[in-house]
Design a protein around this nucleic acid. Structure first.
Lengths: 337, 337
DNA sequence: AAAATATATTAAAACGGTTCGATAATTCAA
DNA sequence: TTGAATTATCGAACCGTTTTAATATATTTT
């Protein structure tokens, strides 16, 4: 059997209280006692039992990570990477991250994730767009939570945001600086605040450089269909057929951009000579597409790490005022521009 | 505060033992007592506290899910889907799945996942190829584990296998039946038993139909480089340049096939008229590539579910003899053949 | 030198469940 | 009718920690 705190206490000739104190670095323990206990711990390879510790401290030691079922599969590895970032951060700490998905038609009565029903988490990270009913539930039940890459307009929740506006602005400005005059926008639905922000970055970059004529609705294509890739293909087809003068496309994410690439290639136009293409996210595939995709790198691991940190601080200090943390992005130039 | 078992007992006018009995459906409880207790539980929305229960039963209530760091990112959503399958199965039960990755250069001394170091799991699922040192560790420490989509030659471990041989055989036979005479093979390293099996299915299908001349080494390309996609591109390039007569390529997985597709398109050959392409796995992207990819569907969710079930049985009956469960695959015909 | 403070250790009471064994009431078999 | 078996309930021990408050000793301050 695995040794318990009692075994350590006996072996070291002290009470279990003292062992607990060195375990948690609390109170006063004489230096030589401490080191004696520590060496016994080493020797017996002792680890405190999670459930016992959690029972005593009245914490669960878990954070939840919730994502739309569709997102987890569709948006490639974007959210998986954010999850990994959280998991990495949690490794240096005493928390486990429980990943689960919720269905598109979410009803808190029946679809509440198990770890919420059983109160098995101390807090929750919500990745990407997430059912409003879920957010309301967490808010009402006072479960600490942070929104990751999402926000609720008009509400002041804890969130980790990506600097979508500046990323888009930089991307489009880069396109303009390389001489592109007719820059189109292709993306998903404006339901997602990130898309909105990226679109805003796009338009304001155009404005700054006096390319207002790009801003007609004709130059942008937004639709909410099954997959981002399909949006890219359909969008590129329609825009390029109606407007052969288009010489660059800024895409609202990389998956969409991959769709655009394949459509442009089918139309026998050269990339980047005839049409330059810019993505957003820097998913792993972006580096291996042909041509390799220029994009705005979103540091996904760092986002996860930041989400973890915020959640952790929230647990330590439950009355902390909600805050927003903005994660900077980086321009990555490859072959598609 | 959340109600405890004591609150339920008081409210129902019984002892906590009795409440515990109905909670766990054990022993004898009079029908009317049971229903009285149940309605109190309903009314107060009581849930037993995980850590308390786990402390008492001496179980952790967790299973681990371990995967190479690279795999989780590279092989698209294959393993994420298997994870999801496990998570779905666990939902109807009392287990949580803790997902973590291990580095390529794994050393049990320093890189042991936290939940193993702290003995926080009752069992572990290992997805795909996984460090031998990790398997040895689990075996020595008698941690129940199952290999998913992997096996160790010569060792009799619990595992969930995909029917790679028959899948490959079917795929190649399908190609042959549509008149293809020169069928190439492109894939990753033979380090992975699945690749070996798929190659065996490939060769035996050729043999059965008297296409032995395909079997020269010239018709297959295997390399272990960064990404499967790149393997596909390089492989297709080399094979098609040296052997213009090749009229079909069987790929060891879908990601590789996507690489092959883009190489073939770059060589200005038509798919499937000039070259038919067959994948393996049926990753989500397969349905949205152009042309859409014909492939062998591997039921990833089901694999996860089966892994969970096997692990669960293993916990119930620790002295169960190691067993292998084979998951059947399905041919999916789309546009690339 | 006495009082106050800091250091060191521990016994015992939680934390919220499960389970063993005792006890009592009821049903069954001989 | 009696003894055994079954049904029903509960007290108490236990699971492995943390934490509070008490006690003892050493050190500092007045």
């Amino acid at each position: 059997m695995a040794p318990t705190i009692k075994d350590i206490a006996n072996e070291a000739g002290v009470s279990i209280s003292t062992v607990s104190l060195v375990l948690n670095q609390k109170g006063y323990v004489a230096p030589q006692t401490r080191s004696r206990i520590e060496s016994v711990i080493q020797k017996l390879n002792y680890r405190p039992l999670h459930s016992a510790r959690k029972l005593a401290t009245q914490q669960t030691g878990n954070f939840g990570f919730i994502i739309w079922e569709g997102h987890f599969s569709e948006v490639e590895l974007f959210y998986s990477q954010i999850f990994l970032g959280m998991e990495y951060a949690a490794r240096h700490n005493d928390y486990y991250i429980l990943l689960t998905t919720v269905r598109e038609e979410f009803d808190p009565k029946t679809d509440l994730p198990r770890f919420l029903r059983y109160r098995d988490v101390d807090g929750v990270a919500l990745a990407g767009r997430v059912p409003g009913a879920l957010i309301d539930y967490l808010d009402n039940q006072h479960v600490p939570f942070v929104l990751v890459d999402y926000e609720v307009p008009g509400k002041n929740f804890n969130c980790i945001k990506i600097d979508n506006y500046n990323g888009a602005f930089q991307a489009v400005e880069t396109l303009i600086k390389t001489g592109r005059k007719h820059i189109a926008f292709v993306g998903g639905s404006f339901f997602h605040p990130s898309v909105k922000e990226r679109y805003r970055g796009y338009t304001e970059a155009l404005d700054k450089h006096g390319l207002k004529h790009n801003r007609s609705e004709d130059y942008s294509y937004c639709e909410n269909i099954e997959t981002s890739r399909l949006i890219g293909e359909k969008g590129a087809m329609r825009l390029l057929e109606n407007h052969p003068e288009i010489d660059a496309v800024f895409c609202c994410n990389d998956t969409t951009a991959l769709g655009v690439i394949s459509a442009v290639q089918r139309l026998k136009k050269r990339i980047p000579e005839d049409v330059a293409i810019f993505g957003f996210d820097d998913i792993p595939t972006a580096e291996f597409s042909s041509p390799k995709l220029s994009t705005i790198r979103v540091p996904k691991l760092e986002i996860g790490k930041e989400a973890y940190k915020l959640l952790y601080e929230l647990i330590q200090n439950p009355r902390m005022a909600p805050q927003t943390r903005m994660i900077a992005v980086e321009t990555i130039l490859r072959e598609s521009t």
